[in-house]
Structure formats: structure tokens, C-alpha cells
């Protein structure tokens, strides 16, 4: 049975520390841009922690929500790409073929989550930063879109290792960088096709919702949080 990679993120456990963001940058060779470029909206973070503020001062609560590519089953980004650079792979991931991308940026417009990023310039890795580049991940050139891959290089490596050793992939043996770095284990990754995997059980949780579910993109990330109907008096 093919895999169907998914994720569950516990918003009640998220502290907004952004360790996931840093880990993602290191793992996936995401360029860091200058402060001037960042102020012009050219910063790239495949995962970001959105902050929302609830209540009126001084009774304010901050809510964090890590947002990354939702790896939608019915992905709006894929249909609009004229060159098939954005496509669905056999594991249900929204794959991006960098070499096939011509940079129409239509996918980024169609994506309701704004999790696709564009290489406005060729990235620079001034010495000695070039030594930290992950050899398993290609560096993207100017003019192509990129986005979270669910650390597809780790998925590939784990699958290859499992096949070489003639064993099945066990749940939890494989983690993307963000899940690995999360100090509160708020991010759980796994195979949704395995009904007993942790992520599949969490995806069925009554605490779970999906981001902008009404748009019909069928995202594969479940956000877990205390729901209003758990404590009716609060509302």
C-alpha cells in the first residue's frame, strides 16, 4: 500500500519558539536574505509561526500556528502549473520539480495558505556558510518556486534503507526536520494510510481541524487544539 504522508500539529503544545523554522532552514538549504530584502517581502520560510492575538489589553492571549505546505490532496497549486513543475507524487505529496519550473508563480497565487516561495535572486552562501549546505537537497536557482517538501530527502532515504534491509517502515522512525526540532513534540509526522500510526489517530481526534477546510483543498495537516465545544462556558 502506498504511503500517504500527513502531519498533526498540536497548537496547545506549540510555544512559538520557532525552532522548527530554524531546523527547516538548515535542513533544506533555504536561503536567508538580507534585512533589506526581507523588508521587501523576499524572506523565505517553508514553515512559519503565525501569531494571532486574542482579547483586549491587558487581557491578551497570543496564539501560535505553525503554517507550512498542507500537502493538499486536492491541491490548487498543481492544476494551474503550465509545465507540471507542481505535481502530485505517488506518496500523495505536492512535489515541486525545480528544474521544470519556469516561474509563472501561478501556483503561489492559487495556494490559499501562501506557503510557496519564490527565488527572486540567486541565493548566496558566503564562506564558510556554504559548508553547512545539506548535500541531500538541491540548491534552487533564481526564478523558481519552492516550498515545504515534508523533507522528501529523508522520506526517500528511509524508504531506501527499509527496502535494503527488507523491512517495513515503522511509524515514528522518520521525521521531518521541524518535527525533530520541536521541543514540545507538537509536530507529529507519519503515514495516514496506516490507521494505527500516531498521526492517523491524531487526525481522527475531535480536537482536530484543518486550516481553511471550507476551501476544499483537502489539506493533510491536522491542527489540534482545545475546541470551544470542550468548554462551552468560555464562549
Amino acid at each position: 500500500m502506498p504511503f500517504r504522508w500527513g502531519m498533526a500539529i498540536d497548537l496547545n503544545a506549540c510555544t512559538g519558539c520557532e525552532a522548527c523554522v530554524t531546523a527547516c532552514h538548515a535542513e533544506n538549504n533555504i536561503p536567508t536574505v538580507s534585512a533589506e530584502q526581507a523588508s521587501r517581502g523576499r524572506a523565505m520560510h517553508w514553515i512559519r509561526v503565525e501569531r494571532y492575538y486574542e482579547g483586549n489589553f491587558p487581557d491578551v492571549r497570543v496564539k501560535f500556528r505553525p503554517v507550512l505546505c498542507q500537502q493538499c490532496d486536492n491541491a490548487p497549486c498543481e492544476a494551474v502549473c503550465p509545465t507540471y513543475a507542481a505535481h502530485h507524487n505517488e506518496d500523495g505529496l505536492n512535489a515541486q520539480v525545480y528544474n521544470r519550473c519556469i516561474g509563472t508563480r501561478y501556483c503561489a497565487n492559487a495556494c490559499p495558505y501562501n506557503v510557496r516561495f519564490f527565488n527572486f535572486f540567486n541565493a548566496e552562501w558566503p564562506k564558510p556558510l556554504h559548508l553547512q549546505l545539506n548535500p541531500d537537497v538541491s540548491v534552487r536557482e533564481v526564478g523558481v518556486m519552492e516550498k515545504c517538501t515534508f523533507c522528501v530527502q529523508r522520506i526517500k532515504a528511509a524508504k531506501t534503507a527499509a527496502r535494503a534491509e527488507h523491512r517495513a517502515l515503522v511509524d515514528g522512525a522518520l521525521q521531518p526536520a521541524c518535527a525533530q526540532a520541536c521541543p514540545t513534540s507538537a509536530i507529529v509526522f507519519g503515514d495516514l494510510n496506516d490507521p494505527d500510526s500516531r498521526v492517523a489517530r491524531l487526525a481522527r481526534s475531535p480536537r482536530g481541524t484543518r486550516l481553511l477546510e471550507d476551501l476544499g483543498a483537502e489539506p493533510k495537516i491536522t491542527y489540534l487544539q482545545k475546541q470551544p465545544w470542550h468548554e462551552p462556558d468560555a464562549y
Binding site: 530584502q37 521587501r40 523576499r42 519564490f118 527572486f120 540567486n122 526564478g143
Partner: peptide, 9 residues
């Protein structure tokens, strides 16, 4: 690169 235009995320 196209970054010379004003487009931004």
C-alpha cells in the same frame, strides 16, 4: 533576477 521588480510574497 526578477527580484528587481517590486513583487513580493
Amino acid at each position: 533576477g526578477i527580484g528587481l521588480s517590486g513583487k513580493r510574497w
